[in-house]
Design a protein around this nucleic acid. Structure first.
Length: 416
RNA sequence: GCGAAUGUAGCUCAGUUGGUUAGAGCGUCUGGUUGUGGUCCAGAAGGCCGUGGGUUCAAGUCCCAUCAUUCGCCCCA
């Protein structure tokens, strides 16, 4: 490397470094999510970051695969892609063991995904996402369960119902209504147009709709209808019986091509951030693509970038401290003699970081404070010979003098 | 891929109609004698004004290009 070339400290475009304070937030968020998923009987799985391109062709959105993916040809001339989403991978896994898996099969995964896009608010090139899916239930119970799971996660993250709303639609119904109004182009394209309904003004939308179908008035009326159709009524009632309020939204289409029936999304109600947070739906056709008997499936994906925006803007991220409980500050040449005391604390379940540096004690305290460590323990020759140590609570400034066992107890009590 | 805004110290930002040694707050470092942080006091370090070109006697300031960041569009988590 050139000597005068300064390496950039910035992470690659659209990716993030996770310093410990960021990692704590991510871990907290996913720990909550993981707990809720497991409480509903979902089991964790994983798949490779690299997949053959074929896995996504004509299943995912075409734009994502063709223009928004990290893909390359490997040394063996295979076309490879860094996974832009999880659904095709999990469908492959289920198809591979179609016969021996037990249904209903509930699976979840938390992993990173890659899309080659222009980064902006709520959207990066690498993001983390929960995927939760239930396989083998064709009935409405599974749709309701998945929506309920999504809602439970929001509640477990302390979101209250004023902050978000759940919108549902049936792609089957939407398909039918498009066909009835005489489509002049591919169904997919009409879907795209409809999905953007809320973003453009009504006159413009009507114009575009007129280009797309023969009878745009009928379709338009359906899209803005805010009552309940027969198709939506049942699932809506069932959701409400389970304590979840959902809203019908007939213009909701979702971006992926594989959805076959119910689709839903969780929408941020904050006017500052009026956007879909995440969503999912039923995709009964994917597993069957692998040449096995089809398996009805419904699931959703929940990305960390939009979710984190939501949590931050609603002040829902708790204060999170480091894993380290105590900084052991050595005074003088006592390292070897201090080690057994550190080990004893560790044996008692305390996380101990030792500051060996030969510098003034106030500098050591400052370092501990900078790292957000709650306690400092002073260990010099006198303490070692007497077995009594001064523990300082760096939050309150209070000091206690005690033996190792009681010191550990004090630290443990402070945790709650 | 298209459009817009912004790049000055580690961070947040000032910097007048172009004018001499480039500013603040916060942070960092040192000191205010012995083994105790946050407050206070004194001092210090730290900038190729994103990068390259142009206009000018003179550019942080004006023009062009380029890169980066952010925000829209497309698409989506």
């Amino acid at each position: 490397m050139e000597e005068n070339m300064k390496l950039s400290t910035q992470p690659y475009k659209g990716t993030r470094d996770f310093y410990p304070e960021d990692m704590r937030v991510r871990n907290w968020m996913f720990a909550v999510i993981r707990r809720v998923c497991e409480s509903y009987g979902y089991e964790e799985y994983d798949a490779p970051v690299l997949e053959p391109v074929d896995l996504y062709l004509s299943k995912t959105s075409e734009e994502i695969v063709n223009e928004q993916s990290y893909s390359f040809t490997d040394r063996g001339d295979r076309k490879v892609i860094m996974r832009p989403e999880m659904t095709p991978s999990v469908s492959r896994m289920v198809a591979a063991r179609r016969q021996e898996l037990g249904y209903p099969l509930r699976l979840y995964n938390i992993a990173n995904f890659f899309r080659y896009e222009r980064p902006q608010k709520g959207r990066l090139r690498e993001f983390w996402q929960l995927n939760a899916d239930i396989f083998g239930v064709g009935g409405i119970e599974a749709d309701v369960e998945i929506i309920k799971l999504a809602d439970s996660i929001m509640k477990a993250l302390d979101a209250n119902p004023e902050m978000y709303e759940i919108r549902i639609n049936s792609k089957l119904l939407l398909d039918k209504r498009i066909k009835e109004s005489g489509p002049k182009m591919q169904l997919k394209q009409v879907m795209r147009l409809i999905d953007g309904f809320e973003k453009i003004d009504k006159a413009e939308f009507k114009n575009k709709l007129a280009d797309a179908v023969e009878r745009p008035e009928d379709l338009y009326e359906f899209l803005v209808y805010d009552g309940d159709t027969e198709e939506i009524k049942e699932i809506k009632n069932r959701c409400e019986k389970s304590g979840i309020s959902v809203k019908s939204k007939y213009s909701l289409a979702r971006g992926f091509d594989y959805y076959t029936d119910i689709v839903f999304e969780v929408f941020d109600k904050n006017p500052q951030n009026n956007r879909s947070l995440f969503g999912g739906g039923r995709y009964d056709g994917l597993v069957g693509n692998f040449g096995v008997e089809p398996v009805p499936t419904v699931g959703f994906g929940m990305g960390d970038v939009t979710l984190l925006n939501f949590l931050n803007s609603n002040n829902l991220v708790p204060k999170l401290g480091p894993a380290t409980d105590v900084a052991m500050l050595l005074i003088g040449e006592v390292n070897e003699k201090a080690q057994p005391f550190a080990d004893e604390l560790r044996r008692l379940g305390i996380n101990v970081a030792i500051d060996y540096e030969d510098r003034k004690i106030d500098k050591k305290i400052k370092s501990a404070v900078k790292n957000n460590i709650r306690f400092a323990l002073f260990v010099g020759p006198d303490e070692i010979s007497q077995g009594i140590f001064t523990l300082k609570d760096l939050e309150s400034g209070k000091e206690t003098k005690d033996n190792i066992e009681n010191t550990a107890k004090t630290i443990r009590l402070s945790r709650n």
